[in-house]
Each structure stands twice: as structure tokens, then as C-alpha cells.
């Protein structure tokens, strides 16, 4: 076999690097374009909510579906998340004789991170998936076209109430998750591990600030916006029959979940930066 000259090798390497760069750029360009499309869709839909005719009946229906029908699964997840997290933290803190800090640590972790993130993931899977499937089915069976032909703006009727309902409902569900998770933590720490109840509550009250809870609730509203915008957009733009509906639902849910987890980091950084600027004394902890 003839050995490759230096020039040929260099050419091949350059070609491979060029190909990789073009591939990466195309993917990035696709992501940027898709993000822009979803953002435009969401902004239009939120604005359309305030246009006439008002869609309060639809809003309440969707809040009932997203919120009320998610309460049980959220509460159940919260209970066991609180208990499991408490047990892990208890085991760790026991090594350094700091078990009295289990309560506040769990409270901070739940209210600031796990509460909104897990609620977001659960609701995105349950309600977001249902949104994408419902709108996708309506698209492929021409029900959305029928709305348009009837002189009804389909985004205002179908998408706006779903997005607004998700933004309003997510903080409420997160509040329930937080509360039940702390109940689970109390159950395990005080009732099972026989930790001092007064210390559990005193320390938690001492360390947990209203701003921590607000941070979680704010994140929850943003996650609600993200998953509902992504899932409704996927459903609304479905193509290709039953397979298309399945594809939209799958992609909508997966993308929502990834978005929630990735954006959580950036939101946390942003919120802490905000508090660092507005509250330089750092009393928030």
C-alpha cells in the first residue's frame, strides 16, 4: 500500500475538520432557527390571550386538566422525594454530627431546585404530552383548518389558554410538591428517625427564607411556559398522520424535559445574580 504524503494527509485532516465544522454549524443553525420559531409562536400566543374574544372558559378547563388532575401524582412524588432526600442527607450529616441541619437542607433543596424541576418534569410528561398529542391529532384530522375556516384564530383558541394555564398552574403544583415533600421529610426525620421535632422546625424556619420559595415558584412558572410552548408548537405543526402525532408527542416531551433541566441551571445563576445585586448583604443565604 502506497504511503500517504504529508500534503495528502494534511488535506484529508483539513477536509474532515471542515466537514465537522459545517455539520456542527448546520446543527446549531437548526437549533437557533427552531428556538426562534418556538419563541415567536409562544409570544404571539401569549399576546393573543389578551385579545378578544376572551378565553376564560378554556383557561379554566386547561387549568383543571393541568393542575387539578396532576395533584395526586405530584403529591405522591413529593412525599417520597422528601423522604428519600431526607434519608440520604441524614446519613451524610450523621457522619459529621450535623443531623439538626437535615430539615433546612431538605427545605432549601426542595423549594429551590427539586420542587420546580421535578414538578416541571412530571407535568411536562403528563400534560405536555397530552397537549402535543391533542393538537397533533386536531391538525392531521383537519380540525385546526376547520377552526380557521370558521373564522376562529386557532392559536388564540387552542394554544393561548394552554400556555397561560401552564404558567399559572405550575407554581401552584410546585407549592403542593414543596409542602408534601416537607411533610415527607418530617415524617421520616421526626417519626421514623426520631430526630428532635423542635430542632427540625426551628432550623428550617431559621434558614428557609420566603425568597427561596419564591425562587422555586418563579422557576416553576418559567418551566410551565417552556414545556407548554414546546409541546403546543410541536402539536400545532404536526405533519404526516398518526405517525406524525406520535413523533410530535415524543419530541415535545423529550425537548421539554431537556429544556427544563438545562434552563434550571441558568435560571438559578440568574436569580442568584439578581439577589446578589438587589441584596448585597447576602441575608438570603
Amino acid at each position: 500500500m502506497k504511503a500517504m504524503t504529508y500534503g495528502e494527509l494534511r488535506g484529508k485532516v483539513n477536509h474532515a475538520i471542515d466537514g465537522a465544522a459545517v455539520f456542527a454549524w448546520k446543527r446549531l443553525e437548526g437549533v437557533i432557527l427552531a428556538t426562534g420559531e418556538v419563541m415567536t409562536f409562544a409570544i404571539y400566543s401569549v399576546r393573543a390571550f389578551f385579545a378578544r374574544p376572551r378565553r376564560f372558559d378554556e383557561l379554566l378547563n386547561h387549568m383543571e386538566f393541568i393542575g387539578n388532575k396532576s395533584v395526586f401524582i405530584i403529591a405522591l412524588s413529593g412525599l417520597f422525594t422528601g423522604a428519600a432526600l431526607s434519608y440520604q442527607i441524614y446519613l451524610g450529616f450523621k457522619l459529621v454530627n450535623a443531623t439538626s441541619l437535615v430539615g433546612p437542607t431538605v427545605a432549601l433543596g426542595i423549594t429551590r431546585e427539586l420542587g420546580p424541576v421535578l414538578t416541571g418534569l412530571i407535568v411536562a410528561a403528563r400534560a405536555g404530552g397530552a397537549m402535543a398529542a391533542r393538537l397533533g391529532t386536531m391538525r392531521v384530522s383537519e380540525q385546526i383548518d376547520a377552526l380557521e375556516v370558521m373564522g376562529v384564530e386557532p392559536r388564540q383558541y387552542l394554544v393561548s389558554p394552554r400556555i397561560v394555564a401552564s404558567v399559572l398552574t405550575m407554581p401552584l403544583l410546585t407549592g403542593i410538591f414543596d409542602f408534601v415533600a416537607m411533610f415527607g421529610s418530617w415524617l421520616l426525620c421526626v417519626q421514623v428517625l426520631e430526630m428532635d421535632e423542635a430542632a427540625f422546625f426551628d432550623r428550617t424556619q431559621l434558614w428557609l427564607q420566603p425568597s427561596h420559595i419564591n425562587e422555586g415558584l418563579f422557576k416553576a412558572a418559567v418551566f410551565g411556559l417552556f414545556f407548554s410552548a414546546v409541546c403546543t408548537h410541536r402539536g400545532f405543526t404536526t405533519k404526516g398522520g398518526a405517525a406524525g402525532v406520535g413523533n410530535s408527542t415524543n419530541r415535545g416531551v423529550v425537548l421539554s424535559m431537556v429544556l427544563i433541566i438545562v434552563s434550571d441551571f441558568f435560571l438559578t445563576s440568574l436569580i442568584n445574580f439578581f439577589y446578589a445585586v438587589t441584596d448585597p448583604t447576602g441575608g438570603r443565604g
Partner: peptide
């Protein structure tokens, strides 16, 4: 479009 009426191929009824 309020002046239009349309019968779709498969009726497109809200299910």
C-alpha cells in the same frame, strides 16, 4: 372567513 362555510373531506368534526 365568517362568510365561508366548509364541508371537509372527512367532516373534521371536533371529536
Amino acid at each position: 372567513r365568517q362568510q365561508y362555510g366548509m364541508l371537509f373531506q372527512y367532516a373534521a368534526l371536533f371529536d
